[in-house]
Structure formats: C-alpha cells, structure tokens
Amino acid sequence: MKAVITVTGKDNVGIVAKVATECSALGANIIDISQSVLREYFAMIVLVDIDGLSCAFGDFVDKMSALGDASGLRIATMHEDIFNSMHRI
C-alpha cells in the first residue's frame, strides 16, 4: 500500500532531508518525489510505500504532522486510496 505525503510552507534549508529522515526512521520507503519552489513557497509531494511501517498508519500520520509543526511546515499524509477513488473509474 502507498500513501501520499504533501509538504507545503516557506522554503528553507533541509526540508527534503527532514522528511526523508523521518520516513526512513518509521519504515516508509520513498518511491517518488516531486518538488518545486514558487517564489518563497515550497511544495513537495512524496509517494511512499507503507507496507514496512514500524508503527500504525495513524501514528505515522501524526508523526509526520508533528514534524511539520516543529519545522513551520504543513505536512499531510493520506492513504492513496482516496486519490484512486476520486480520479479513477
């Protein structure tokens, strides 16, 4: 199973590293990253495989969200099923 992590906020040094480190620590394998900076605004979408998570998915969502709060970013993690449901027949 996969999940989509979206990271938005003011650009600063080390955002990708922080997110990647947390994913690695919790057993989420990064499959794809798309990232852009528009003026000072940072936006990143990370697709992760969550089969090897070392915690429950709900805890993973909370921990990523907490990382966002601590770094002045907004990090939302959602199961891929919601995107598949909405955009694929």
């Binding site: 979206t6 979408i45 697709l47 891929e80 919601i82 995107f83 909405m86 955009h87």
Partner: peptide
C-alpha cells in the same frame, strides 16, 4: 502512478 494534478485537486 498517481497524477500530481489529481493529488492537488483532492487536497484543494
């Protein structure tokens, strides 16, 4: 593969 525009649309 998920499409970025679809992801952004859902989140929006």
């Amino acid at each position: 593969m998920l499409n970025i525009n679809d992801i952004l649309e859902t989140i929006n």
